[in-house]
Simulated assay, not measured.
Amino acid sequence: MPSITVGMAMGLLIVGNLIAVFSDALIKTLGEDTAVFQFVFFRQLTAVLILLPFCYGVSKKSFTDGLKWHALRAHIWLLGAIFMVFAINAMPLATANAIFYAAPLMMLPLALVFFKEQLTRYSISAGVLGFMGMLVIIRPTEIDWAAIAALIVALSIASNNLLIRKLPKHQTVAQTLLLTNLAGIPASLGLALWEGRKWDWTPLITAAGSSSFILIYAAICVIAYRSAESNKIASAEYSGLLGAVGVGLIWFGETPDFAMVLGTAMIILPLIWLARIEKNKAAMNPELSE
Rank of each mutant, 00 (worst) to 15 (best):
130 G>Y: 05
149 A>W: 09
82 I>C: 00
225 Y>V: 09
79 L>F: 14
66 G>Q: 04
145 W>I: 11
279 K>M: 15
170 H>D: 13
73 R>L: 01
152 I>Q: 06
185 I>Y: 07
47 A>S: 15
250 I>E: 03
172 T>Q: 12
124 I>N: 12
66 G>D: 08
106 M>V: 13
215 L>Q: 10
228 A>W: 05
29 T>D: 13
219 A>V: 08
219 A>K: 08
59 S>C: 11
167 L>K: 04
216 I>S: 13
277 I>V: 12
38 Q>I: 05
235 S>V: 14
144 D>K: 07
9 A>N: 12
149 A>S: 13
277 I>D: 02
20 A>T: 06
10 M>I: 12
114 F>V: 04
203 P>H: 00
155 L>M: 12
125 S>W: 11
140 P>K: 10
178 L>A: 03
88 I>C: 05
102 A>S: 15
67 L>P: 10
246 G>A: 15
110 L>N: 02
242 L>E: 08
253 G>L: 08
135 L>M: 12
55 C>L: 12
50 I>E: 02
81 A>P: 05
254 E>P: 10
265 A>S: 15
163 L>P: 09
220 I>T: 09
215 L>H: 10
116 K>A: 07
90 A>C: 11
208 A>Y: 12
46 T>W: 06
76 I>H: 10
112 L>E: 06
165 R>A: 04
161 N>V: 03
181 N>E: 06
88 I>H: 01
5 T>G: 15
174 A>T: 02
223 I>F: 05
273 W>N: 03
49 L>G: 03
222 V>F: 03
69 W>E: 13
34 T>N: 11
57 G>P: 01
63 F>C: 06
126 A>Q: 04
271 L>E: 02
90 A>V: 09
128 V>M: 07
155 L>R: 03
270 P>I: 10
138 I>Y: 00
56 Y>S: 13
177 L>F: 00
175 Q>R: 09
173 V>I: 03
270 P>Y: 06
244 A>F: 07
135 L>W: 08
31 G>F: 01
152 I>G: 05
229 E>L: 13
49 L>K: 09
93 L>Q: 04
61 K>C: 07
196 G>N: 05
25 A>R: 02
204 L>G: 09
257 D>M: 10
101 Y>G: 03
105 L>F: 15
112 L>P: 01
29 T>I: 02
12 L>Q: 04
86 F>P: 06
215 L>Y: 08
204 L>H: 13
159 S>C: 06
166 K>S: 07
279 K>L: 14
201 W>C: 12
16 G>F: 04
226 R>H: 02
192 A>Y: 08
124 I>D: 08
28 K>N: 00
108 L>S: 07
284 M>T: 15
166 K>G: 06
128 V>T: 08
102 A>D: 04
157 I>Q: 01
242 L>R: 10
57 G>T: 02
48 V>I: 14
237 E>Q: 14
